[in-house]
Design a protein around this nucleic acid. Structure first.
Lengths: 164, 164
DNA sequence: GCATTTTCACCTAGGTGTCAAGTT
DNA sequence: AACTTGACACCTAGGTGAAAATGC
């Protein structure tokens, strides 16, 4: 997923253990298609059936609050797929559907026998991170934006990288 | 470090938390040089002063016993340096000195307040992994062995990779 | 004279959009 | 007609020993 979801954490218990996670929930029960004449997405019917939702656990989990708060966190290992039979633990999405990423902070208290009974969750949603999943870009300006900002797409840039 | 230190674990508590670590201890208090005429290492004086020893923690730590036992463990992120002022957390060694890698399994019991009081260690030493640290290979057969076995050195192979 | 560092061509490994071909 | 897949050239990022340059 590019751009990568990045976040800075504050207010954690420095010595406590936390797991950080992300998941993706459908924004609505609709399927979309892109109307080129109006350059906008329009509803194209009811949503396709979706696989059981998956959760991406940040690979540095679990870790101390102090460690998580030290720097900006990046979910750069998170991968998306449209393959409903995916076997790599990637997040499964339906193409041409809208999704809202969610960020979860899980406090892991291991003092008790039954760990789950003492876990605390906080979930954060940033509405500006909603997106439509595609297998091919529908809008040339999105293509140009990603070519301009993703280092791996440098080979497609027209002019000097410093000019961007 | 190549070849990478790899090990398989058995007999852990599947639900318990473990940290896996490696460190490197001097084999003796000597400095060596390579005698080309006899193709062997000979003592060349007393050991140079060494920096405070560092410990490499396997980056997947901490993790459950069940997880550690699932596959062969590889310490492929472990890096060596001769830079006594290293700031990257690498293992600091003296060139032309002999070292013995050690492997540590640490059981992390977090039920008590003072975690260190309830930790249990096991240390494993494989004498066949002893080596002499160098900045340049002293023996052409070592060079050829590494060219033959390290995928990143394919550019230096003489014949078809399949023949090796 | 020996040991170390630096630069280099050559790899591995994998993330980009393009374009042609395939699918529904 | 709309959507998806796979091969591809072109990148990033970084691990090899060779050879030249530097240090002691």
């Amino acid at each position: 997923m590019f751009p990568t979801f990045q976040v800075r954490l504050a207010g954690l218990d420095p010595g406590g253990d936390y797991m950080l996670m992300m998941d993706f929930i459908p924004v609505d029960d609709k399927r979309y298609r892109y109307a080129f004449h109006s350059s906008s997405w329009i509803v194209a019917g009811k949503a396709d059936p979706n696989s059981p939702p998956r959760i991406h656990v940040h690979p540095d989990s679990p870790n101390k609050g102090a460690q998580w708060m030290k720097q900006v966190l990046s979910f750069d290992k998170l991968k998306l797929t449209n393959n409903q039979l995916d076997d790599n633990g990637h997040i499964i999405l339906n193409s041409m559907h809208r999704y809202q990423p969610r960020f979860h902070v899980v406090y892991v208290n291991c003092k008790g026998e039954d760990a789950t009974a003492t876990e605390n969750f906080s979930t954060f949603v940033f509405p500006e991170t909603k997106f439509t999943a595609v297998t091919a870009y529908q809008n040339h300006r999105i293509t140009q934006l990603k070519i301009a900002s993703n280092p791996f797409a440098k080979g497609f840039r027209d002019c000097d990288p410093d000019e961007w």
